[in-house]
Design a protein around this nucleic acid. Sequence first.
DNA 1: CCGGCGGTCGAGGAGATCGTGACGACTACT
DNA 2: AGTAGTCGTCACGATCTCCTCGACCGCCGG
Lengths: 223, 223
Amino acid sequence: MNEMKPRVLLVEDDAQLRAMLEELFVGEGYEVSSASDGQKGLHLALTGEFDVLVLDRGLPVMDGLNLLARLRREGVETAALILSALGNPADRVEGLDAGAEDYLAKPFDVDELLARLRALRRRHIAAATTLRITGGRFDLESRSVIRPDGSVVVLSERESALLEELARWPNRVFGRDEILEYVFPNAEEAGVVDTYVHYLRRKLGRGSVRTIHGVGYRIGTLA
Amino acid sequence: MNEMKPRVLLVEDDAQLRAMLEELFVGEGYEVSSASDGQKGLHLALTGEFDVLVLDRGLPVMDGLNLLARLRREGVETAALILSALGNPADRVEGLDAGAEDYLAKPFDVDELLARLRALRRRHIAAATTLRITGGRFDLESRSVIRPDGSVVVLSERESALLEELARWPNRVFGRDEILEYVFPNAEEAGVVDTYVHYLRRKLGRGSVRTIHGVGYRIGTLA
DNA sequence: CCGGCGGTCGAGGAGATCGTGACGACTACT
DNA sequence: AGTAGTCGTCACGATCTCCTCGACCGCCGG
C-alpha cells in the first residue's frame, strides 16, 4: 500500500491539547506536523505541503488569524480551520475573513472536528456552482457574472466555459493548447482562444483576463 | 493530432441512462468503458487504466460507495465522481468519505456533469513549481513573482530563465560567462547579461540582484 | 584629482506573439 | 424561411520580447 496519507499541520500552544489532537489525527490516518507558536507554524506552512491546516486562534508570537492572513498573502491556498475560545458570530466572521474555510469554537466535539476536516479536505475539490472572480461572482447555472455594483453580465455558452476553466483555478496559467482541448474541442485553430478571451474582456473589462506572453492566460482572485 | 483520448469508466445500472451517458461522453471525446453492476465495474477498474470514474451510487451486487472504497483500499487513486439520487448533505459526506472527489445528485444537468469531469481530470495533473526568493515567491509556470503585499510581476521568458538560474542556488555567485552559457545560448555579446540583470532590477527592485564587482551576480534568500 | 575598467542604463530594430474587427457558417427560436 | 445570437477562421496592426550597441556612471588604484 503506497497511498499517500493526508497531511495536516497543527498549530496549538497548549501542550496538552496539542498532544491530544496529534494522537487523534494520527489515529484517523493523518500525517501530522505540529508547532507551538505562530512563528514556527508559519515556517512549517511555508516550507511543507499540507492538505489542511488546523490553527489555534490565540497563539504566542503570532496569532492564528495573523498567521493565516500572512499565508494567504503568500499565495498559500491550503484549506484552514481555526480553533478558538471565541465563538460568537463576530469572531467567526473575523476568522473567515482572514481566509479560513471553517471555524470551530472551543470546547468542541472531537468527532465534529474530524468530520469537518474530512469535509474541508474535499470541499476545494467538489465543484462549486458559483465562483469568485476578479470583480464579482460568476454563477455557472445562469452563466452570468454579478458585479459588486449589482450589474449582471450574461455570457454565451463558450464564453462561460472559458471563464469557468480559468476561474476554477485562479492564478494558474492556462496554455492555449490546454484551453483549446477543454473549451473548444471542435476548433481547428488555436486562434479561437484569443477571440474568446477578447469577448470576455469586452464584457468583463480589460483587466479581467491577464496575458502571460508566450505562455497563456490566467485570472486572479484579487481586484 | 495524435493525442491520447481521456478514458472514463462508467458504472450505471439503468440501461437507458447508461446509453445516454456513453453517447454524451463519446461526443465529448472520451473513450468510454461501462459496466452495469458493481462487480463488473470493480473488475474493469482494477484491470484497466482510467482518467476518471463515474459511479452510480445505487448499483446491483455492490453499490458505488462500496466499490469505490474497495478501489481505494486497493490503492487505485483515480478521480471518482458519484452519481446519486440522494442529495442531502449527509449523503454527500458519505460519498466523499468513501473516497470520491465529487458528488452529483440526480437529476443533474449534463453540462454540469461534463464540466465537473473536466475539473476532476485537471486536478490530477496539477503541479506548481515555485521558488522562494528575496521578497516573494517565484512561480516558474506563470513566470511571475508574487510579493508579500500581493502584487504580481510577470517576467519575460529570458528574465525568468535568468532569475531561475540565480534562484536555484541562492547566495552563490554566478559569473557572466556561466550565465551567458546557460541563459543566453544564442547571444553573441556578453552584454545581454547586464541588460537582463537590469531588467530584473527594474521589475523587482534594486536590491533584488546584487553585484560582486569583477566577479558576477547573486541573489540572497533573506530579505 | 584623474584615468581606466567594469557596471548601469536607455535606445532601437528584427522578429515573435497577441489583440481586434470583419466575415461566413451554423443553430435555435419564430 | 427569417432573424438573432453564437461559433470559429482569418488577416493585419499593435505590442512585447530579445539582443546589440553605445553613452554614462561609479568604484577603484595611482
